[in-house]
């Protein structure tokens, strides 16, 4: 690992000032991804500012929902009474990710900012536009089994790895960030992460030195019917091939509101808005779920090795919606 300066920020303003002042500086949360990337020499910050002791770790009720702290750990968040009762989709998604050890370390802000696990990004001997802009995309014509079927560009076909973020996308979360000189702003979750386009080196729309202070979860009526389904190569502790966050609210058996977001298929959590639109006002039946999934996947653009994801995503959407209908009970999704 290359040498770097370490500092322990006492307050948010100091942390933000330090990272804003040095383009090579990074905030350090749990470090579960960043420290690994530094060992691999994929990332080499010249300075790390430890933010885990800042007072942004609370989870609390607000006028419009619940606010979760940027430096609260994933474990704390997933197990918080307010989240388990009101946003079980978020608990399930967090618990589907990584391992108990990693969830104990990882922060919510850090989870959103984790990098792709594309093997071409990780291997410094191979070309990757995300790691080294202009070097080319090794995966486009290479081994792209785990890569995107939506929203990719010739520059990058990587997928975004977070499970938590897929649930946050479905929940229409709002990210609160703070920059230099107390400059605060909010970012709608759909606008937080980016598609690769011509600048795959940018995963999200944060500016250097901007810190995620909290994430707002708007009130909803999905708690009774939501489900996070994750399909992976082994039953635990692996990244998603395809995952689905599904949430429904009903009027009788008629769909009043529906949210569907997919993981493992794009450079950001993919809102299945075609399927959502298709389902609005329809009966909540398996055949309608299947038809909606078909409609969404019509727009998929699979690569050479990942055509299976198209079929898998259709089935996963249907199963996740059924899981939501079964009250979000694990294992009952059919």
């Amino acid at each position: 690992m290359r040498p770097f300066k370490f500092s322990n920020a006492g307050d948010p303003a100091t942390a933000i000032t330090l990272v804003s002042a040095n383009p090579g500086a990074k905030f350090l949360g749990g470090g579960t991804n960043l420290v690994d990337l530094m060992k691999e020499d994929v990332m080499h910050p010249s300075e790390l500012v430890d933010i885990t002791r800042l007072k942004h770790a609370d989870i609390e009720k607000t006028a419009t929902g619940v606010s979760i702290g940027g430096t609260a750990t994933n474990s704390f968040t997933a197990n918080h009474e307010l989240i388990r009762k009101n946003y079980p989709l978020l608990s399930m998604a967090i618990l589907a990710g990584a391992s108990a050890q990693i969830r104990n370390m990882a922060t919510n802000g850090g989870n959103l900012n984790q990098r792709t696990r594309c093997t071409y990004f990780y291997d410094v001997n191979l070309p990757c536009n995300k790691r080294e802009p202009g070097s080319g995309c090794g995966a486009l014509k290479g081994v792209n089994r785990n890569h995107a079927i939506f929203g990719w560009s010739e520059k990058c076909v990587a997928v975004y790895p977070s499970d938590m973020a897929v649930a946050l996308a479905a929940l229409n979360a709002v990210v609160h960030v703070e920059g230099r000189n107390n400059a605060k702003r909010t970012i709608q979750f759909a606008d937080y992460h980016r598609l690769p386009g011509d600048t795959p080196e940018k995963d999200n729309n944060l500016k250097q030195g901007e810190l995620i202070t909290s994430i707002d979860l708007p009130t909803n009526d999905f708690a009774e019917r939501s489900y996070y389904l994750k399909i992976r190569e082994r039953s635990s502790y692996a990244f998603a091939l395809v995952s689905v966050a599904a949430a429904l609210s009903l009027d009788g058996n008629q769909i009043k509101q529906v949210r569907i977001a997919l993981g493992g298929v794009a450079h950001k959590p993919w809102r299945a808005s075609v399927a959502e639109k298709w389902l609005m006002g329809k009966e909540a039946t398996e055949s309608n779920f299947r038809a909606a999934a078909e409609a969404e996947l019509k727009n998929a653009r699979p690569l050479e090795h990942n055509k299976f994801k198209v079929v898998m995503a259709k089935k996963a959407i249907t199963r996740a919606l059924q899981g939501a209908m079964q009250g979000g009970v694990y294992g009952l999704e059919g």
């Binding site: 388990r84 009762k85 608990s91 108990a100 979000g328 009970v329 694990y330």
Partner: peptide, 24 residues
Amino acid sequence: SAVALMSEAKNGEASYVTRNVRQT
């Protein structure tokens, strides 16, 4: 890991395979 798991279970913490995370 197993020692920590004992206290997590005692605290009622959930996992991905917990039947219903809403039941705390």
